[in-house]
Amino acid sequence: MAATAIHKFPQYQYVDAVRWLPQLSPLDRFAVLALFDFDSDASSIQIHSLASNPFSLQPQFSWSSPSRISSLKTSLFLQKPLIVASTAAGSLHFLFADSSDASFDSEVSLPEGTLHSVPASSVDLMDGGVECVTVGEDGKVNLVGVGESNLSCRRLFDSGGLVSYTAARWASSVEFATGGYGFSLQWWDQRKPGGPVSNFKGNWDKKLSSGIVHSIDIHPSRKHTCLAGGSLGTVFAWDLRWQQQPIILSGAGAGTGAGNTMVHSVSESEVWEVQYDRCIKSNTSSTRILPSMICSEDGILAVIEQGEEPVELLAEACAINSFDIDRHNPSIKCACFFVVTLILGC
């Protein structure tokens, strides 16, 4: 690992989520922040530009949200940066940014109550931004098609509350994965409606240590593997070809699972976000799970790799809610409470 530089940018509002805006030109880099002001109850999405020399994060544009942001994703849509955010009130907002200076161009939204009876737990934008999946604790799975001026939404499934979903992630243009209670994962295919194509629930409930999946990632080169992070510092991979056996990468509660004798645990708290570490060039022909990065409630940002000692990048005094890896530039950004931290050259 090359030398890293850590820059901290204190914010005056609580940072719920951070995302990189897909890069418009090699010179400009923009970050999207979901902010919440506890004292005035005001929430907003802000675009900050990253200036070098001296390093600074300058707010450029702000869009005030009617309610606190619960999930935030970014993508490119017709060569324009697109931001999607779900709020605590249950509304869903699509913000189109200008491709030259990242200013907000237009906004299309679905009011609360149209998609879910409770706030959507998670949203994910397909690469290319044409479709967005939203899932919620009410057990509804919705697909929202993004057009240039209009949105079309349809309900793919409704479990009637029998199953709650807390995370979602696209795998391809037709498939996606969701996660929920009891470390469960579901695999969906738009071509096969009526329910999930397969269900995953590992056999690790011998001890009373189950939890909730908070985040899922799927690597474009390995669509059959679903990486999930959740309660008790648990990070595991579900290989669709090995359906009932999770590959546990980290975790306090699930560490004694069968076949996982050598599991290092980097955190014992909630893993809020997990992403494949696209900065690390790894041997892609290897059968091992690709290295990934996690952030947790107990303030850890770390890289974990199957069978290896985890590498801690940050250990903060307070929770790290969110992080994002810039795919084109090897750098990470993470939101911790009132601070946005930028790690360069990792």
């Binding site: 009637g160 029998l162 199953v163 929920g180 009891g182 469960s184 329910g195 056999n203 409930d205 189950s210």
Partner: peptide, 13 residues
């Protein structure tokens, strides 16, 4: 049954 499947999975062994 699809709806129930997830719930039954949740109940575990």
């Amino acid at each position: 049954f699809k709806q129930w499947e997830g719930m039954i999975e949740l109940l575990g062994s």
